[in-house]
Design a protein around this nucleic acid. Structure first.
Lengths: 179, 179
DNA sequence: TGTACATCAGTGAACGCGCGTTCACTGATGTAC
DNA sequence: TGTACATCAGTGAACGCGCGTTCACTGATGTAC
C-alpha cells in the first residue's frame, strides 16, 4: 500500500496491546519459536519493521505475551472444583489452545526460554492457589499435575478416542477423589 | 580434514543407528525443531551432507528417533508401581531429559508434527499397558497424566523448591492412592 | 588369489529460504509561538 | 485559533545468519573375472 503512516500515540498504545494479545494467542497455539514477529504483525495488518518501535526484541514480546496469557487465564473464574475440572478437562479446551490455559500450552517454551520460564513459574503458583481456594484440603500439586498432564497428552495423541478417554478418566478420578 | 571417505556398509549401518540414537537424545533434551541436522551429524564427527545418504529428510529422522526413544524407555524395567513412581518422579529424571521418558519431553513436538505424533500415540498406549500391569485396578490414565504433568511442570519452573515439591507431592499422593 | 573396474559413504561448498533485526524514509500527529 | 516546525508510528527494502537440502567430487570398499 502507499504511505498511510503515523498514528496517534493512543492508537500506537492500542496497537501494542493488540500485539501482546495476538502473540499470547499464537504462542499458545503453536509455540513461541514457531511464530515469527512478521506473522504477529501481519495478523494486525502491519509490517514487521514497525514492531521494533514498540518492543525491544522478540524475547521481550515473549515475556509480555506469556505474562498476559497467565493473567487472562479462564481457570480463574470457575465457581467450584467440579466445574473447574469439567471445563479444564474438556475436548473444547483441548481444541482451543489459543484461548486456553498456558500451563500445558507453554510448558515446552518455558523449559527452554528464560523469559517464558519466569512468567510460567508465577502461573504455576497462581494455579495452585486457585485450586487450594476451590478445593481446600485437596492435594493441589498432584491435582494440577493431573490436569496439565491429561491436557498435554490429549493434545499430543493421534487417536481421538484415546485423547478423549485421557480427559474423561482423569476428570472422573479427580471428581471422585475430591472431598 | 582431507578425504578419508567411504566406509564399509557395516560401518555405514552403525553410523545410521548412532544418528538415530543421538537424535533421540538431543530431541528429548531440546525439542526436534531446536536441533539441526548439522548438529546431530557433528555430534557423530560427521558433516551434514552425508546425512541424506542414510535418511530421506529431517522429518524421517524425527519419526525414527522418536520411535527409538519410546522403544528404549527405562520405565519398562520397573519391578513395582512404587519403584516406578520413585524413579519417574525424581529430580534425577527431571534433570536428564535426554535419557528420560519421551512423553513429557516430546509432547510439544507431537502436538505440532505428524511424524512425531504417530510414535507418541503408541508410546502412550505402551505406558498405559505397563501401568496396568504394575498396578492392576489403578486408574491408569489419571496416574499417567499425573506423572507426565508433574515432570512437565517441574522442568518448566524457575524455582527449585517448587519444582521438587511438584515431584514429591505427586509421588506421595499416588503412592498412597494405589491399592 | 589377484587385478580392473564400478559403487557409493562421506565431504564440503553452494543453493534458496525464512528468520530477527536495522534503517532511510514518509507524512500525519503533536507542539511552540 | 492558526501557522511553522519537530516528532515519530509505521513502511518496505535490506542485512546477516542458520537452516534443510543438493550436488560434484573423492577414494576406499565391493564385485566381476
Amino acid at each position: 500500500m502507499e504511505g498511510r503512516v503515523r498514528r496517534s500515540r493512543e492508537e500506537a498504545a492500542l496497537t501494542r496491546l493488540a500485539a501482546v494479545e495476538m502473540a499470547s494467542r499464537l504462542f499458545r497455539e503453536r509455540g513461541v519459536e514457531s511464530v515469527s514477529v512478521g506473522e504477529v504483525m501481519a495478523s494486525l495488518g502491519m509490517t514487521a519493521g514497525g514492531f521494533y518501535r514498540a518492543f525491544e526484541s522478540k524475547e521481550a514480546l515473549a515475556a509480555e505475551a506469556c505474562a498476559a496469557a497467565f493473567a487472562g487465564s479462564a481457570l480463574a473464574s470457575a465457581p467450584s472444583a467440579a466445574t473447574m475440572l469439567r471445563r479444564y478437562l474438556s475436548t473444547a479446551h483441548r481444541d482451543a489452545p489459543a484461548d486456553g490455559c498456558p500451563l500445558p500450552a507453554l510448558a515446552s517454551d518455558a523449559a527452554h526460554q528464560p523469559a517464558v520460564r519466569r512468567a510460567y513459574t508465577e502461573g504455576v503458583r497462581d494455579a495452585l492457589a486457585r485450586i487450594e481456594a476451590l478445593a481446600p484440603g485437596a492435594d493441589s500439586k498432584a491435582l494440577l499435575a493431573g490436569m496439565v498432564g491429561a491436557l498435554v497428552i490429549a493434545r499430543a495423541v493421534d487417536d481421538e478416542e484415546l485423547s478423549a478417554a485421557m480427559l474423561r478418566e482423569t476428570r472422573r478420578f479427580w471428581t471422585e477423589a475430591l472431598p
